[in-house]
Design a protein around this nucleic acid. Structure first.
Ligand SMILES: [Mn+2]
Ligand SMILES: [Mn+2]
Ligand SMILES: [Zn+2]
Ligand SMILES: [Zn+2]
Lengths: 140, 140
DNA sequence: TGTTAAACTTAGAACGAGTCTAAAGATTGC
DNA sequence: GCAATCTTTAGACTCGTTCTAAGTTTAACA
């Protein structure tokens, strides 16, 4: 169930609407990642959230990210080995991944057509389709 | 440069043709994974290769998998968090991934149409496109 | 508003897939 | 044969992530 996050709605209300108790830590993290579409890793967030005093623990960062994913406020993006990215752009879209720099970019859903779905047995439901275009900047 | 691996060609010759010195360990692993299309993880291979005596070390398993990937004899498939699979089916195809069972299946390339490629700056070359369809067996 | 149970946060230990190290073993060219 | 190069190995190590157990906050409600 996707929910919109209009500007006038506070993070506090967004979290409540998802059944998440808006603790100080969750609101702080929410403000950082839910107010605009952004790609980031757990460690990037951990560093950023702790730049301006008021320490938030690693465990809480991971717990909160997991909770936000569970509540469809964030999605995980799997690219290279050992790298998990989070994405607060919940509209249907895909990604390109620069294998050199590790940079992640968006591809509009309209730019990739999934024509036929695989032969799905009728008890199998599709939970999502992930497309990652691996790119490399040509060596000059 | 994809090479075919006809039945009459021994693993030994396949490896040599790729510039790989066919050591006993590499040939043994090659026989297990290169003679038919198969999906497997490093630890699955490590266990299987060591079932029938003649121990092969973890380091060699990882080194060999990395070497085979580098030489385009295997590809990596990234699915769930912390799960790296290897695939000896080198024809263009995609995957579905059962998020419950962890099972991985093939989707013929023809079943998914990549219509438009993203706006690629001319110095950016596409190295590959990975499509993973996440599926879940409906709770009975 | 005080009491309490449930939910949450925390530091740090633990985990595990994957990599590295340094030494021993194999292969190759001369 | 001899030396140079390449390969394998055990086990230590790394690092992203998860777990644990204790303390803190929140929410329910008397
Ligand atoms: Mn991370
Ligand atoms: Mn594995
Ligand atoms: Zn995105
Ligand atoms: Zn496959």
């Amino acid at each position: 169930m996707r929910r919109s996050r209009p500007e006038h709605e506070s993070i506090d209300e967004t979290l409540r609407a998802c059944g998440i108790i808006p603790t100080a830590q969750r609101v702080r993290i929410g403000r950082m990642v839910l107010t605009r579409p952004t790609h980031f890793s757990a460690e990037q967030l951990y560093e950023r959230v702790n730049l301006a005093g008021n320490h938030v623990s690693k465990a809480t960062v991971y717990n909160t990210l997991g909770l936000f994913v569970e509540k469809d406020l964030l999605r995980r993006v799997l690219v290279g080995t050992g790298k998990v990215f989070y994405d607060s752009n919940m509209t249907a879209h895909h990604h390109f991944y620069d294998v050199e720099s590790g940079e992640l970019g968006d591809i509009d859903a309209g730019e990739i057509e999934i024509r036929a779905l695989p032969k799905t047995a009728d008890d199998v439901q599709i939970e999502g389709i992930d497309v990652v275009v691996r790119v490399r900047r040509a060596a000059s």
